[in-house]
Computed example of a mutant assay.
Amino acid sequence: MSGNASSSAFEAAYGFARSDVRLSNWRQAPWNVWAFRHVSELIPTARIAATPGLTEDAVVDPRDLLRLPLPVGGDNMTIADGLRSTFTDALVVMKSGRVIADYHAPNFTLQSRHILFSSSKSVTAVVAGIVHNDGLIDLDAPVPTYVPELGSSAYADARIRDVLDMRVSLDFSETYQDPRGDFARYRRAGLLEPAVPGDTPDSLIPFLASLQKGPGDHGGPFHYCSPNSDVLGLVIERATGQRFNDFVSERLWQPIGARQDAYITVDATGLARTGGGFCMAPRDFARIGELMRLGGTLDGRRILSDNWVEDTIAHGSPEAWRAGPGVEWLPEGRYSNKWYQTGNANSAFFTLGIHGQMLYVDPVAELTVAKFSSQPEPVNNDLKRLNLALFDALAKQA
């Protein structure tokens, strides 16, 4: 196909030219629809290799599932309406270990890979659980035990457990729209945004080392800060002596039978951005949910300890959660090992990333749902609630 024909095909598929998508606008609509599926064309990445020779089964027709009612606010909505309203790119529904529906937006396939954003944190915590089971991480040890470069930062006296549960006292605000604040500097350190005039570029370690303690002690209220999860990735690298992506491939990706290579964004030094850089195919994302649903085993193979899974899905401090802002959209929630717990009757739990990336597990209904989205806004509490209502409807009807 000639260059002009290729460009015309791209514009016909997405409504804009490939040249329109830049590092300065890749998270904004409408360009995010393409960019979230092609992150490696915008940001440096490291490969997470799948086992060669494994292939996916055929797509499972979702039409019966899409017709199911979605009872929200008395409206006569269907699951299909809910998917459109939440800007869904892909949905995989698994019931009792079997894929029962694949939904793909236009130009998305079983092989397409999509960024997880902060759902990456939950995957990183699964990896931490594997390392902990190997006896290489002490959860009560302070962070500088593994990363001495952080000895003068807020993390000097923070335990690994505080990092896992987002209970680090940190002078940091997750302000997505401020181009000059600490969060923007953090994103630039991860090569996620272009440099700005007068900016001194950082890589992740110098940025993390610059963060200072906030008011109060560590181990207090739930305080969501993405850098905590990059600290956890650093701890994993130092404890294992391997690059993060290589360890993930060997100890998680290949053992769960992932069919597609994944990748993770890296900074200028090649350090993985474990707080938000995972990119993977939808069914492989669902396989991580199945691993958690089955208590750390998959296809009869023990990958993660059942104690770690139990700690993740059944613990977490209700008091710490109620003291944080998440109570507004998840009143009965808790947070443990970077996974959210709904507090509902089925003890469902889930991951969450900006722009609508979620992995939802209902152990009673034996349901796992992986969802990729391209919501225009990074954070929208109404859409969080709608997504949770959608998952609950699937648990009751699928």
Rank of each mutant, 00 (worst) to 15 (best):
G3L: 15
G3W: 13
A9V: 08
A17G: 15
L23W: 04
N25Y: 10
W34T: 06
F36Q: 12
V39P: 04
E41G: 08
T51E: 03
A58R: 03
L65I: 05
P69T: 02
P71Y: 04
P71H: 00
T78A: 00
A80L: 03
G82D: 06
L83I: 04
S85Q: 10
F87Q: 09
T88N: 00
V93D: 09
K95S: 13
I100C: 11
A105K: 11
A105L: 13
F108V: 12
H114V: 09
S119Y: 08
K121P: 10
V123C: 08
V123Q: 14
N133Q: 15
L139V: 11
L139S: 10
V143K: 02
P144I: 01
P144Y: 04
Y176R: 01
Y176I: 02
R180G: 10
G181E: 00
F183N: 11
A189K: 13
T200H: 14
S203T: 15
Q212S: 14
G219R: 11
P221E: 14
H223M: 14
S226M: 13
S229K: 12
D230Y: 14
L234T: 06
Q242M: 15
F247W: 15
V248A: 08
R251M: 14
Q254P: 09
Y263V: 13
T274I: 11
F278P: 02
R283N: 11
D284P: 04
F285N: 07
T297P: 05
D299A: 08
R302K: 13
I303E: 00
D306E: 10
W308L: 03
V309T: 11
V309S: 09
A314F: 03
P325M: 02
R334I: 00
K338T: 01
W339M: 02
Q341R: 00
A348H: 00
F350R: 12
T351Q: 01
G356T: 09
L359S: 06
T368C: 09
A370P: 03
S373R: 02
E377S: 10
L383I: 03
L388C: 08
L390E: 07
F391A: 04
L394R: 03
A395N: 07
